[in-house]
Structure formats: structure tokens, C-alpha cells
Design a binder for these strands. Sequence first.
DNA 1: TTTTTGTGTCACGCATTTGTCACCTTGTCC
DNA 2: GGACAAGGTGACAAATGCGTGACACAAAAA
Lengths: 229, 229
Amino acid sequence: MKPYVLIVEDEDALATLLEYNFGKEGYETAIAMDGEEALLLASERTPDLILLDWMLPKLSGIEVCRRLRRRKETSKTPVIMLTARGDETDRITGLDFGADDYMIKPFSMPELFARTRALMRRAKPSLLEDVIRVGDVEVDSQAFRVKRDDQALHLGPTEFRLLDHFVRHPGRVFSREQLLDAVWGRDVYVEARTVDVHIGRLRKALKLPGKGDPIRTVRSAGYAFEAVD
Amino acid sequence: MKPYVLIVEDEDALATLLEYNFGKEGYETAIAMDGEEALLLASERTPDLILLDWMLPKLSGIEVCRRLRRRKETSKTPVIMLTARGDETDRITGLDFGADDYMIKPFSMPELFARTRALMRRAKPSLLEDVIRVGDVEVDSQAFRVKRDDQALHLGPTEFRLLDHFVRHPGRVFSREQLLDAVWGRDVYVEARTVDVHIGRLRKALKLPGKGDPIRTVRSAGYAFEAVD
DNA sequence: TTTTTGTGTCACGCATTTGTCACCTTGTCC
DNA sequence: GGACAAGGTGACAAATGCGTGACACAAAAA
């Protein structure tokens, strides 16, 4: 559903400000207060964008960036460096340590959003698009509408978010835990089997006479959404 | 919605002056200080008009113009070139690089506004109009009048602003918080549920015998305004 | 002033949605 | 086939979200 932004910043005030503004702008956020926590959170759920402070306790921003790049999942995740004026500005400008962009504090929120969107558009355009089609299924996340074969369907909120997530990552298999993280949120506790029930409900809602089931069950692994015609 | 003007100008003083004057004239503005930023901003939100300096760092105005024309969204966006006297005036006069008009610095604001309006009227007349129609609902934001099926309706101020906002973004779902921001203002504190009450009042005010409800409730997400007949 | 109109909250009722469980079906491995 | 594990699903109580009438208060009009 929403793009997931990892904020790595040890200044409480700035971290909170970023979280507030990104939340309002429609992003899901998580905050890491130091480099180690950042790597941990990033491995728990792959972020769609990372805001990375240059000066950090435990591990420097550069080091975090380097390690993120070494991992397969985050090797291409957009990273925006946040630096204070004077932090070896020239080296930062080179961006030769793997960041995609940088902002010098203090910066304006609109500009940060602009760069954020630009980077995400480059990396994962589907995250910013409003209407996505997979096979005969069309999801409009701006109007909150779902169609199959131009037939409007009614989904509950959770089913909608679930489908939205699937449709943005077509073909990929998600475990129940991953789906819980992505659709329900990291903090709520729900039984893993609850996912099954919602998958069932989503299947029922997407059912059309003569049409196949676009959700594939991968035994002992999870579920995937695939195009059918 | 105000027309959105992208100002591409590297001279700080002129850029600020343009922003100030266009803001006062009722336009939304953004400033790009070089060619790359211009392309970035233009892709971020499609402008309704572009003021483009001829001499720019990184990418020349001509090159920017060419690239804008290549993109689908900006292929027909009006572009006014701003040139200093002597900048190969003859070639510029040809306008063969894709601009729609040009002004030689220093120029007079009223003349710039006149050309701006002329170009925008040609490209997108609806932006200059005050009355917007969605389905059978007509809103005149200048005269503060609302009609449905040519039947004049009476709305309170808040209902009017709410409808005005909706009508400018038909089909899109807005959360209560977004509506509070857009209609009440970012700074005032009102309960989110207050939006519900006003939605109810707006619905009642728009009710006409035999006519459907143009406001759609999206459970756990917000409200959207849609054309009905 | 009195009257009218508009605004923001609240509380109650109702319908939908949700998470969980229990029981059933299906798949897999020996 | 039998035994076990994993997935499907109907049922249901609880939670959630929404619509609305009522009300107090403020601002504007008369």
C-alpha cells in the first residue's frame, strides 16, 4: 500500500518532525536512532526509501549505506543522506559511497518530498501510481476502487489493502508474516492464520463467473498474486 | 484550483520577483534554479505554464524545452521564454525550439500576465474559469453559488468550501484529516468527526428529489465526490 | 436587543468488518 | 493407504466506523 520510509536520525526533534510530515504525506514510517537499529529494521522489512543521517552513534551513515548496498534486497533502495553544513560537504557531493541524493540541514520539507518522489519514481514507479492493472484486475488506490473485467467490486478495507499490496508486487510470494507486516502493520499482534481468512475473503470478493483465481497458494511458503485472463 | 506556474530562473532577484507577482495574481508557483531542477519539478507536478530562462546552469533553456516537449504530460504545456537582449535574438524569434512565446528582459509584469493568460486560455481554458461542473453539480467559486440541475442551492460557508474542494478533485478519496487541512486550515484544531457532520449537511443541501448522492463514503478511508446523473 | 444562521461536539443506534476458533479438505511423505 | 501437516471456510462475538438528531455556543442579521 503506502510506500515505507525508514528514517535514520538520532536527533529526536528532527526524527519526529520527519515522521510527522511523511506520515501526513501518505508514507508509512519507521525510526531508527542509530546505525545498528537501522540495519536491523531494514532487514525486517525492506524499505522503499531510506532517509539517512550522516552523523550517527555506533555506525556512521556512510557505513550503514555501504552495508545496505551489499545486501541484495536493499542494493537499489533509494537513499537520501541528511547532512549538516560543513560535514565534508565535498565528499558528500560526490555521492560515491552509494547514496542517491543528499540534503543539507536545515532543509525544506517540500523539497525533500520532491526529491523523495523523484527517487522513488525512478526506483519503483508502481509505488506512486494511482491505478495499477495486473491481468484483468484493476486497483485505483486514489479512488479506492477495484474492478475486474471492468466490473466494479466491493472489498472491505483490509481486503483492499491486501490486494493493493499484492498488485504492487505481482508474482511475488509473501509469507503470512510479511503480509501481516505490510498490510496490518508491524506493531499489531494478530494470528498468522488470520491472513488465511482474509485471503479467502479476498478470493471470494474477486470471484467472477468463468474467471480463475488470481491468488496462488504456495504451500508452506505463503501467497502470491498473479495475472489471469 | 489555481494554475500552477513553474518559474525556471537562476537569478535570485528575478525569480523572487516573479514568484511574488504571480502569487499575488492568484497563481501557485514553484522555482527551479537550473535546468535539471526544472525537469525534476515539472515531472513531479505537471505545470500549467512554464516561464523558462534562456541562460541556465547545467542545461540550457532550449534543451529543457526540448526535453519537456518529448514528455507526454508537458508536450503541450505553454512555455514562455525569458531572454536577455542580444541572446541570439533572431533564432529565438523563430520559436522553432518549441516555446510558445518569449519576452525580452527587462519586461513589464502586466504584459507578461497578458501573454500568460492568452496562452493558458488557448491551452486549458478551464483553469481560468471560476465555475466548475461535476456531473449535474455546478460550483461558481467566484460568486459563491451552487446549482444542481440548474436549481440554485443554499450552502453554509463551510459546506461551500468543502464542496469546492471536492469538485476540484473529483473521484479522489480524502481522509478526514486531509479535508480538515484543505477546508478548515492546517492550524485550527477540530475533531475529525466534525467532518462527518459537515458531510452530512452537505449531502442534505445537495439533495434533490430523484437525484442520487454524489458523495461516496469509503469506510475507514474518507469521502469522495463523484459525478451522478 | 432579539432572531436567525452557522459551527463544533457528543452520544446513541446501526451495519459492516474483524480476528479467532473449530472443523473440514487437501496435499505430502513414508 | 495411513498419518501428519498445511490450507480453506462457516460461524460468531467483539470491535470499529459511520450517520444523525440534539445541543450549546458564537456570529451575523434584523
